[in-house]
Amino acid sequence: MRELTYNEAALEAIAEEMRRDPKIFYMSTDALPPLLKEFGEQRVKATPITEAAFTGIGIGAAGCGFRPIVDWRQVTFCFVAMDQIVNQAAKIHYMFGGQVTFPMLFRASVGGGGLVAAQHSQSPYSMFMNVAGLKMFLPSTPYDMKGLIKTAIRDNNPVISFESSRLMGRRGPVPDEDYTIPLGQADVKREGSDVTVVALAWLVHEALAAAEELAKEGISVEIVDPRTLVPLDKDTIRSSVRKTGRLVIADEAGPTAGFSAEVAAVVTEDAATFARLKAPVKRVCALQVPIPYSPVLENAVFPDRNRIIAGIREVLDAKQPAAA
């Protein structure tokens, strides 16, 4: 099968959808050259650097029958548009009694690894998960990226595509034929029996490397990639944990009220899954700090395969939660 990079897979999905549906148009600060070349200025708009304004413009156009793609680029740039995202996009379908739909795709890159410091490195998806009315996903492979973007563009709700900065150039197989991946469907990236690792984006790859390493010792690691954050595929996560009895959650975001906290709750509040736990749940997350610049500091903040391995060893060594 041919290979594309993560970023190319996103652009290919968008271009294919734009060819299919003339109601789709694209807005970003600086028009993306390949899209601009094919679709022209009418459908690929370079905006002023005003995320608040062009996010709202996207909402209005969506309410009038268009299907805008609003590219915030770095997720940190969309914070100036929070009123439009939280008060408007997320709420208006509900607040107006469902009388009209607001189909929109928002794009935002997340994560670290670029040594660009705190205002250009962040993984704030849990802030958005906390807002009712937004769907969102964070793919780990070019294949998942293309299939999820296509589904999101066809969805009749605001959907955020969080895209890992570290994975932009990473290659992977992408079939020629048209396909989609449903939102809310996790993917078991590796089957195993001793411990479940729920990981996102770049950390899926780190977890796979960790699993290879531990396999040499006879430790069998199952890796679940939720892919979609909202709606979250609770069933796949729970059934994996019921099988292995142990859970490590790996996330490039900090732990506090984060994605990892949500997954831990999903597992522990389900009686059947809780009953199968052989060890406390372990979170392997970024430190709860703004992302620093110096390579030494940035590396100190983010989890990696070694910390995932340490986390797995911790849950394997742990005793079952005491009944006494």
Partner: peptide, 27 residues
């Protein structure tokens, strides 16, 4: 709101509707 008659909604946030209706202008 009544989108059927082109009324895109009252809005509880001061200035919250200006960009949305500018999107209607773009539409």
């Amino acid at each position: 709101a009544d989108f059927g008659i082109g009324m895109l909604g009252a809005n509880g946030i001061v200035a919250g509707g200006i960009s949305i209706v500018t999107g209607a202008g773009l539409a």
